[in-house]
Design a protein around this nucleic acid. Structure first.
Length: 631
RNA sequence: GCCCUUGUAGCUCAGCGGUAGAGCACUUCCAUGGUAAGGAAGGGGUCAUCGGUUCAAAUCCGAUCAAGGGCUCCA
């Protein structure tokens, strides 16, 4: 099994780096339960619980673990808590810290623990006790608050000086919506005040590059109540989006794909045949017209299957690679929508590859290369997960084994590090998922490669093999960006809105000093436009500083200043977003430079400029492990 | 869907019981100014929607819609 532990530089804004990043320590020692930061956060969660107990003697307590950037504690309370309560809670916590209570560890028999928590009417603790295998349980007492807890903790509350409550949220007991809704309070804590302040500063910085804010500031896209969960693309954003789509289209053409385009609207029957109506029906928009039941397609697989079946197929056509940028609609729950990353209408850079088993390893290798090239194009780091046969799998066990071996072999022969998630595959086939991490430290599943042994059967798809028998093809579902909308949003955040020249909606802005230079400015613009460069002219009667400021704010890659000198010499004064002032150039020389950057899709923006810092490593598995450990 | 928070001009926000304000943006005028904000004047809001309390509601209450943070689910 491979891990990504040694992979340098997963980027996150969370995490001071220079001197022992707090989180990096947690992450680099996931099994070292004595980690000081872990203890501080875990202990601060108990201090929070103690304060809550003082304020609400009837409160019931659930769990309070440390997490990646702090801690939380879940409570059942007699009234809703709101951020306005934080002052009082933090005040009480401060008092508990100042009194420097010891954390006293004891080991109780299960029986004793049951009696204790039963007497105090703590159903969640009782349920936790039942889940513990040992005959004895670990108990920590701090001041007046005694909690079932595996620990470890700091010696005394005085060690938890630097904390802050951050937000309240609802959370179902054990994450199950059939269970009662508890109130969760999130907070964070650090070893030093400096680290706490730096963390809070970085959270603020992260907000500034939120795609929802940048999307409006840079005039890329908007949202509107008249279609919640959909992106309304503005001209600038749509231009950039088209460039991104153009990249994927070209990548597909270069790799032997053909592209189709199908309707959005279908007789629901199609999705009954595919099985989606049964498994995915709740997420589909459906309605009735002309005495038929219709739906908006939530995925492209079924109509691509239909395409394959439109004629008799030969083994000579395989692998058949069919791409579709279909418009998809999914009926996501109102509370789950979020910016452009979680929407109801989106487009995938989707493709389905029909092949037989013998093609698998080579085809996966090709896909790994396409994924790698794409993420490298934007200097995005990513993790790979291989998910294998689940308990409820369908199909032939031997086929599964061989397919999984092919996936592994392809990953290994391409020198990819990956983690294996046993039993996490879909019921219809194993898969490889790619997680990229955005600048807010969130990781997103973008690319995915999923094998499917079932769908071709449901559509009775066959091809004629070399021996003249009819065979059922295997299908690979694959996407690299995943959702184009989401991927675009990730790029905006990753690059802080400074898109590389090839994607930039406005590549060049030409600014004049006085009215005398208008004609020359338009001449230069025309020359650049002839070369398919997106150049705009700013001849407004504003001072040059004002025009520059506006162009900088809009993150235009090339800013050309034209005054009397430039007109006289036939030059342009070049200022670039990443490099600042560059001096004067011949317009044709500049044109050639820009054309070359566009052709090569150069990443001519400084990713570091966006304020990202590297941390040693931090991955999701450990966060989960931490959450499970504390109870 | 559930929990908490929020919803005032294109943007950022103030006002929090006596029927709307600022900065930026926009329009016009003056200024023609060399690398991140020149000056002046002006236009623009049924304060998310619907209902209630009140002599009086942007302000208090309720419902709905939407957004944000979570839970859940996923691309």
């Amino acid at each position: 099994m491979h891990t990504l532990r040694d992979r340098p530089g997963i980027r996150s804004i969370f995490g001071p780096t220079a001197s022992g990043c707090a989180m990096a320590e947690v992450a680099s020692n996931p099994d070292d339960s004595k980690d000081q930061l872990y203890r501080i956060r875990h202990s601060t969660a108990h201090i929070l619980a103690t304060a809550i107990q003082q304020m609400f003697p009837d409160a019931r307590f659930a769990i309070g673990p440390p997490i990646e950037d702090g801690f939380y504690y879940d409570f059942e309370l007699p009234r809703p808590i709101s951020p306005e309560d934080f002052d009082e809670i933090e005040g009480r916590m401060r008092g508990i810290v100042n009194r420097d209570h010891d954390f006293v560890h004891e080991t109780w028999s299960k029986e004793k623990a049951r009696e204790y928590f039963d007497e105090r009417d703590e159903p969640y603790k009782l349920e936790l006790i039942e889940g513990i295998e040992d005959d004895e349980v670990s108990i920590y007492t701090c001041g007046d608050f005694t909690d079932l807890c595996a620990g470890p903790h700091v010696e005394s509350t005085g060690a938890c000086q630097h904390f802050k409550l951050r937000k309240v949220a609802g959370a179902y007991w054990r994450g199950d919506e059939n269970n009662p809704m508890l109130q969760r309070i999130y907070g964070t804590a650090f070893e030093t005040e400096d680290e706490l302040e730096q963390f809070l500063f970085m959270v603020e910085e992260a907000k500034k590059r939120d795609h929802r804010k940048l999307g409006v500031d840079l005039d890329l896209f908007r949202f509107d109540d008249r279609s919640p969960g959909s992106v309304f693309w503005m001209p600038r954003g749509w231009t950039a989006y088209r460039e991104l789509k153009g990249y994927f289209r070209e990548l597909e053409e270069d790799n032997g794909y053909e592209e189709i385009h199908n309707p959005m609207l279908y007789d629901k029957e199609l999705f009954e045949q595919s099985g989606h109506a049964e498994h995915y029906g709740e997420n589909m928009f459906t309605f009735e017209a002309h005495d038929r039941e219709w739906c908006l397609k939530p995925m492209n697989c079924p109509d691509t299957m239909v395409y394959f079946g439109t004629k008799k197929r030969s083994y000579r056509e395989l692998p058949l690679r069919v791409a579709e940028f279909g418009d998809l609609h999914r009926n996501e729950l109102p509370g789950t929508l979020s910016g452009a990353t979680r929407v109801r209408h989106f487009v995938q850079d989707d493709a389905h590859i029909f092949l037989d088993e013998s093609h698998l390893e080579d085809e996966i290798g090709l896909l790994l290369d396409m994924v790698d090239r794409t993420f490298k194009l934007f200097d995005l780091r990513y993790d790979i997960e291989l998910s294998t046969r689940p308990d409820d799998f369908m199909g032939d066990e031997q086929l599964w084994d061989e397919a999984e071996d092919s996936l592994k072999a392809a990953l290994e022969s391409n020198n990819k590090d990956f983690e294996i998630h046993e039993g996490d595959g879909a019921f219809y086939g194993p898969k490889i998922d790619f997680q990229v991490r955005d600048s807010l430290g969130r990781s997103w599943q973008c690319a995915t490669i999923q094998l499917d042994f079932q769908l071709p059967r449901r559509f009775d798809l066959t091809y004629t093999a070399e021996d003249n028998t009819e065979q059922t093809p295997i299908v690979i579902h694959r996407a690299i960006a995943g959702s184009m909308e989401r991927f675009f949003a990730i790029l905006v955040e990753h690059l802080s809105g400074a898109l590389p020249t090839w994607m930039a909606p406005e590549q060049v802005r030409i600014m004049t000093i006085t009215d005398e230079e208008h004609d020359y400015a338009y001449d230069v613009a025309e020359m650049l436009q002839e070369a398919d460069i997106r150049a705009e002219v700013d001849i407004r009667s504003e001072k040059i500083g004002y025009k520059i400021r506006e162009a900088e704010t809009m993150k235009v890659p090339y800013m050309l200043v034209i005054g009397g000198d430039e007109v006289e010499d036939g030059t342009v004064s070049v200022r670039s977003y990443t490099e600042g002032r560059r001096g004067t150039m011949e317009p044709e020389e500049l044109r050639d430079e820009i054309v070359k950057k566009i052709e090569t899709r150069a990443l001519d923006v400084d990713v570091e400029r966006s304020g990202l810092t590297d941390i040693a490593e931090s991955h999701d598995g450990e966060g989960t492990e931490m959450e499970e450990r504390g109870y």
